[in-house]
């Protein structure tokens, strides 16, 4: 029975991580905008949902949705100035924004400062998470097969050509970013009501990197890949910890190596058999096209 509960718990965490990975994949994999603050949006969702439930006694589902909406709002606010520029700025700006948020969470009274918030009711279970995963993936797929999703991919493929096709690239990038933040906010709420305790460090830079690793491992721009990446990187540390507790110290070292090695050896990730987006532009092709 205890065993069973443990497996269910791991499965639930996998579900939450799947939502995080597919939502970051929307921003970085499909739209090609690297975000290093994805966990921040998760945190905004978690804190908002928790505070609503604890202080205002709002029921679970509305808290969750409002938390996600708040995360989306912040995604929009941070996206507007940064997404007008080349994608690299977004990486730093999201990183910086994440640190500012952490700073605020650490200093505000209402968020409990570094102590975080305790006594959150345990509502999240495997069924709720499974339902959330289904809803997220279903809506995401609908978006991706539509005109909107095609515009995201077009921006990743060639921003200038996308503009020439009449796509307001800035607005669409902000849109992708906002939707991604919304989903991450849902994951955050689920996280809070699962572990019953949150603090600013749950949603820091390292968590953002962990999510990025899931996406990169599974394959950028590939929803199935993101799901696989999330599952692998949730189970693997659990497994290693059962082998030797010492190994978990090396986890972040491993993540760092993973990112570098994947980019060099298999940039398209585990799942994708076609070289998606990260194709190397061969010399002949370049010469043939007469451009750079």
């Amino acid at each position: 029975m205890k065993r069973m509960n443990y497996y269910l718990q791991v499965l639930t965490v996998i579900g939450i991580n799947i939502i995080l990975a597919v939502s970051l994949n929307l921003v970085s994999g499909f739209t090609g905008q690297l975000s290093l603050g994805h966990a921040t949006f998760m945190g905004i969702g978690a804190y908002t949902a928790t505070l609503l439930a604890l202080k205002l006694h709002v029921p679970f589902i509305p808290s969750l949705i409002f938390g996600a909406a708040m995360a989306a709002f912040f995604g929009f606010i941070i996206g507007v100035p940064t997404l007008r520029l080349k994608g690299d700025y977004l990486a730093i700006a999201t990183l910086g924004f994440g640190e500012i948020m952490k700073n605020i969470l650490l200093n505000l009274k209402i968020t409990g400062g570094p102590m975080g918030l305790r006594g959150i009711p345990k509502v999240t279970n495997i069924y709720i998470v499974a339902a959330a995963v289904v809803v997220v993936i279903f809506t995401l797929n609908r978006i991706m097969i539509s005109r909107v999703g095609k515009s995201f991919i077009a921006i990743r493929e060639d921003e200038l050509a996308a503009e020439a096709m009449g796509i307001n690239t800035t607005n669409y990038k902000i849109l992708a970013f906002t939707i991604g933040a919304f989903y991450a906010g849902i994951a955050g709420g689920l996280f809070a009501f699962l572990f019953r305790y949150i603090n600013p460090n749950n949603f820091g830079f390292m968590k953002s990197i962990e999510i990025l690793c899931m996406v990169v491992l599974g394959g950028m721009g590939n929803t199935a890949g993101a799901i696989l990446g999330a599952a692998l990187l949730t189970v693997l540390p659990e497994f290693l910890r059962s082998v030797s507790p010492l190994i978990s110290q090396y986890r972040m070292v491993f993540y760092g190596l993973l990112l570098v090695v994947m980019m060099i050896v298999r940039p398209q990730g585990l799942l994708s058999n076609t070289s998606f987006y990260f194709r190397r532009i061969s010399v002949e092709k370049n010469a043939g096209k007469g451009g750079r």
Binding site: R147, A154, D158, L160, A161, R279, G290, G291
Partner: peptide, 18 residues
């Protein structure tokens, strides 16, 4: 464009749909 700028990973049809 002089130096072809297609959406390379998308299908021919999707390029025209875009």
């Amino acid at each position: 464009f002089q130096n072809i700028r297609l959406f390379g990973e998308m299908s021919v049809l999707d390029n025209v749909i875009i």
